[in-house]
C-alpha cells in the first residue's frame, strides 16, 4: 500500500500501486505512515544521539539555553524595562513562557527545512515524506520534556520559598496544550517547507520572522498589560491562548479562557489539514525543483 495507490479494479489488474502524474488532492495515506513508524522512531533517536555526540556537556545544553535566556529577560525586561509579571516571580514567568515558546519555534524552524535539508535522502529513496517532520516534532518533544522538568524544579524551589503559586486541576490541560503547540509548529513548518522548494525567499523570512513573532506572544509581558485596542491583534495570534493557558495552569494566575483555547484548536486543525494537503502535493515532484 502506498500513498500513490489508487483503488483499481481487483478483478482485472491487481496492481499494488499505480504511479500517475497527478493524484487527487485529498489522497493522503496515513496507513502508510503508520507502517513506517519504526523509521520515525529511528529518526528521533538519530537526532537525539547525533546532536550531543562529541559535546562535553551533552544533554545539559537543553537546559542551559532556556536558563540563560531567562536570566537575560529578567535583567532586560524585568529590571531595566520594568515590565510587570502579574505578581509571579520573574524567573518563573519568563522561563515558563520561554519553554513553551521554544517548543513551538524549534518545531517550526526545523520542519520548515524538511525538503531543503533532506534533498539528498529524498532524491534517492522513497518513504512517506511526512515521516521526517513528524520525527522532528517528536525529537523536539524530548527536549521540551527535559526543559519542562527543569522548569518544574524552579517551580518547586519557589513554592518551598513561599511564593504564591497555586497549581490546580486544570494542569490536566497540559498535554492538550503541548499537542496544540506541536501541531501549530508542524503545520506552519510543513507549509513553509513545501513553498520553499520553489520559492527560496521564505527561508530568509522564517529565521527572523519566528523571533519577531515571539514579541507578539505574551512571553515577556502578561496579556493583562496589553491596552484594550491592541488586544485583538495579540489574541488573533493562535499561540497567545496556548502560552497564556500554559502559564495559568502552571503558575495559577488568572483563569483559563476556553473560548480562546477553542480558537487555537480550530486554527491548528485547519492549519494541519491545509499543511498536509500542500505537503502531500509537493512531495511527489519537489525533486525536480528543489
Amino acid at each position: 500500500m502506498s500513498s500513490t495507490l489508487e483503488k483499481t479494479d481487483y478483478g482485472t489488474d491487481h496492481w499494488t500501486m499505480i504511479l500517475r502524474p497527478k493524484k487527487s488532492l485529498f489522497q493522503v495515506n496515513l496507513a502508510e505512515l503508520w507502517q513506517y513508524r519504526d523509521l520515525i522512531s529511528l529518526f528521533v533517536r538519530r537526532d537525539f544521539v547525533a546532536k550531543y555526540k562529541q559535546t562535553i556537556l551533552g544533554p545539559l545544553w537543553f537546559v542551559i539555553q532556556p536558563l540563560l535566556t531567562t536570566l537575560m529577560f529578567v535583567v532586560v525586561f524585568g529590571n531595566i524595562a520594568g515590565i510587570p509579571t502579574d505578581g509571579i516571580p520573574q524567573v518563573l514567568f519568563y522561563m515558563s513562557g520561554i519553554v513553551g515558546w521554544n517548543y513551538f519555534s524549534t518545531c517550526l524552524n526545523d520542519t520548515s527545512q524538511t525538503f531543503l535539508k533532506n534533498a539528498s535522502i529524498f532524491g534517492k529513496v522513497y518513504f512517506p515524506r511526512l515521516a521526517m517532520p513528524i520525527s522532528i516534532v517528536i525529537s523536539n518533544l524530548v527536549s521540551f520534556i527535559i526543559q519542562f522538568l527543569f522548569l518544574l524544579c524552579f517551580l518547586l524551589y519557589f513554592y518551598l520559598k513561599g511564593a504564591d503559586i497555586s497549581t490546580g486541576v486544570d494542569v490536566l490541560l497540559l498535554p492538550f496544550l503541548v499537542l496544540l503547540i506541536a501541531g501549530l509548529g508542524l503545520g506552519f513548518g510543513i507549509i513553509i517547507s513545501s513553498l520553499t522548494t520553489k520559492y527560496r525567499d521564505l527561508t530568509h523570512l522564517v529565521g527572523f520572522g519566528v523571533s519577531l513573532w515571539m514579541y507578539a506572544t505574551p512571553i515577556i509581558y502578561p496579556l493583562s498589560e496589553i491596552p484594550e485596542r491592541y488586544r485583538m491583534f495579540v489574541l488573533a495570534n493562535p499561540m497567545t491562548p496556548l502560552i497564556e493557558t500554559f502559564k495559568t495552569v502552571l503558575l495559577g494566575v488568572g483563569t483559563v479562557n476556553y473560548l480562546y483555547l477553542l480558537y487555537s484548536l480550530v486554527f491548528t486543525i485547519v492549519l494541519l489539514i491545509v499543511g498536509v494537503l500542500i505537503f502531500n502535493k509537493v512531495e511527489r515532484t519537489f525533486m525536480d525543483t528543489v
Binding site: 502506498s2 500513490t4 489488474d13 491487481h14 496492481w15 499494488t16 500501486m17 499505480i18 504511479l19 500517475r20 502524474p21 497527478k22 529524498f122 532524491g123 534517492k124 529513496v125 522513497y126 511527489r284 515532484t285 525533486m287 525536480d288
Partner: peptide, 22 residues
Amino acid sequence: KLLSRVTAPTTGEIKVKGRIAS
C-alpha cells in the same frame, strides 16, 4: 527515479505489482 517514486512522471502511468526496494 520514477520507479523508485523519488519523483512523479509528467504523463503516462507506471503499474507495479509487489514491494519495491531501490
